[in-house]
Computed example of a mutant assay.
Amino acid sequence: MTTAAGRVPDVSELADRAAIEEILALHCRGVDRADEAALKHCYWPDATTAYGEAAVLAHPFCSQLVSAIKAYRQTHHMVTNSLFVFDGDRAKVETILLAFHYMVNDDGDDNEMTYLGRYLDDFEKRDHVWKIKHREPIMSWSQNGSATHDADHPALSALRRAKRYPDDPIYETD
């Protein structure tokens, strides 16, 4: 993937980048909140994803992902450092991914998994809307270990807790 690094983008390209970055962020929210509608909104209906050996349709995968993510007490996905290569209404986007997964195993022990990798995305713009046409995550490395979560620490005990859809504070209406 080559880029025209350092070239000043025009206003239209900046708007396209902002729209794509919003989809990348919404996907993280969709995973962390187990929000199937948010996840599906990030992909075109005919989109594919390759989290395994073969590409599958993204929308059915989103349903499976919501079920799988609920096995963890919490997850936190972050994306950083996106590079864009535009070709009309298509874009190749490489984005760094950091993901944290917190779970309590059958013995009652707290465990966490840290995952670092990249998303290689093909985006497509249809009717002035950017969404993912194909996604392939690429793993750099991961680690698993005991967690040191202390929800009762005085500095943290008064904070509201993150929850899954629809119980998380982000879904509250006025």
Score class of each variant (00 low, 15 high):
171 Y>L: 08
43 Y>W: 08
122 D>H: 12
144 N>V: 15
2 T>L: 15
88 G>R: 07
3 T>I: 14
83 L>R: 13
55 A>H: 03
52 G>P: 02
91 A>W: 00
145 G>M: 08
85 V>C: 05
108 G>F: 11
51 Y>P: 02
37 A>N: 07
133 K>C: 05
56 V>G: 02
45 P>G: 05
18 A>W: 07
98 L>H: 13
40 K>E: 06
138 I>F: 10
38 A>R: 01
96 I>Y: 14
81 N>R: 13
87 D>F: 05
53 E>F: 08
174 D>R: 05
70 K>P: 08
83 L>Y: 04
162 A>Y: 03
88 G>L: 11
19 A>E: 02
77 H>S: 03
101 H>E: 11
1 M>G: 14
97 L>P: 00
122 D>Q: 15
112 E>V: 15
117 G>L: 03
76 H>I: 13
134 H>E: 13
23 I>G: 04
83 L>V: 08
152 D>W: 05
16 D>F: 12
38 A>P: 02
152 D>Y: 06
54 A>Y: 06
83 L>S: 06
108 G>T: 10
101 H>N: 14
38 A>S: 12
28 C>R: 01
54 A>W: 04
3 T>S: 14
71 A>I: 04
30 G>W: 02
143 Q>C: 06
63 S>L: 03
75 T>Q: 03
131 K>T: 01
35 D>A: 00
23 I>T: 15
50 A>N: 09
149 H>D: 13
100 F>T: 14
23 I>M: 13
1 M>S: 11
59 H>D: 08
136 E>M: 15
30 G>K: 01
111 N>Y: 06
153 H>D: 15
155 A>I: 03
172 E>S: 09
109 D>S: 15
134 H>S: 11
9 P>F: 06
153 H>P: 09
110 D>G: 12
26 L>Q: 08
37 A>K: 11
7 R>K: 15
134 H>Y: 08
154 P>T: 07
136 E>A: 12
125 K>L: 01
34 A>N: 04
